[in-house]
Simulated scan of single mutants.
Amino acid sequence: MAALAAALVAGMACTAYADETATLKRIAATSTIRIGQRVSSVPFSYHADRRRVVGYSQDIMLNIVAAVQNELKLQSLTIALAPITSQNWIPLLINGTIDIECSSTSHTVDREQKVAFSNTIFVIGTRILSHKDAGIKDFGDLAGRRVVITAGTTAERSLHRFNEEHSAGMVITAAKEHDVAFQQLEAGTVAAFVMDDALLYGERAKAREPDDWIVTGTPLALEAYACTMRRDDAPFKALVDRAIATLMASGEARTLYDKWFTQPIPPKGMNLNWPISNRLVELFNAPNDRPIE
Rank of each mutant, 00 (worst) to 15 (best):
R50E: 15
R50H: 13
R51I: 13
V54S: 04
G55L: 09
Y56G: 10
Q58N: 12
I60V: 15
M61K: 05
L62I: 09
L62W: 09
V65M: 00
V68D: 04
E71V: 01
L74T: 07
Q75I: 01
S76Y: 06
S76I: 03
L77A: 04
I79Y: 06
L81P: 01
A82V: 14
S86N: 15
N88T: 14
W89P: 02
W89Y: 15
L93E: 08
I94F: 00
N95T: 05
N95H: 08
T97G: 08
I100S: 06
S103R: 02
T105F: 13
H107V: 00
T108Q: 06
K114P: 00
A116K: 06
F117Q: 14
T120W: 01
T120D: 09
T120F: 03
V123S: 04
V123W: 09
G125T: 13
T126R: 02
R127K: 15
L129Q: 06
L129V: 00
L129D: 05
H131N: 04
D133A: 09
D133S: 14
I136L: 03
K137I: 02
G140S: 11
D141S: 08
D141C: 07
D141I: 12
G144C: 07
G144F: 09
V147M: 04
I149D: 05
G152M: 02
T153K: 10
A155T: 11
E156P: 09
H160I: 11
F162M: 12
E164A: 15
E164C: 06
E165P: 03
E165L: 12
E165N: 10
A168N: 12
M170W: 00
M170S: 01
V171I: 14
T173L: 07
A175H: 07
A175C: 02
A175S: 12
K176V: 09
D179T: 06
D179V: 09
A181D: 04
F182E: 08
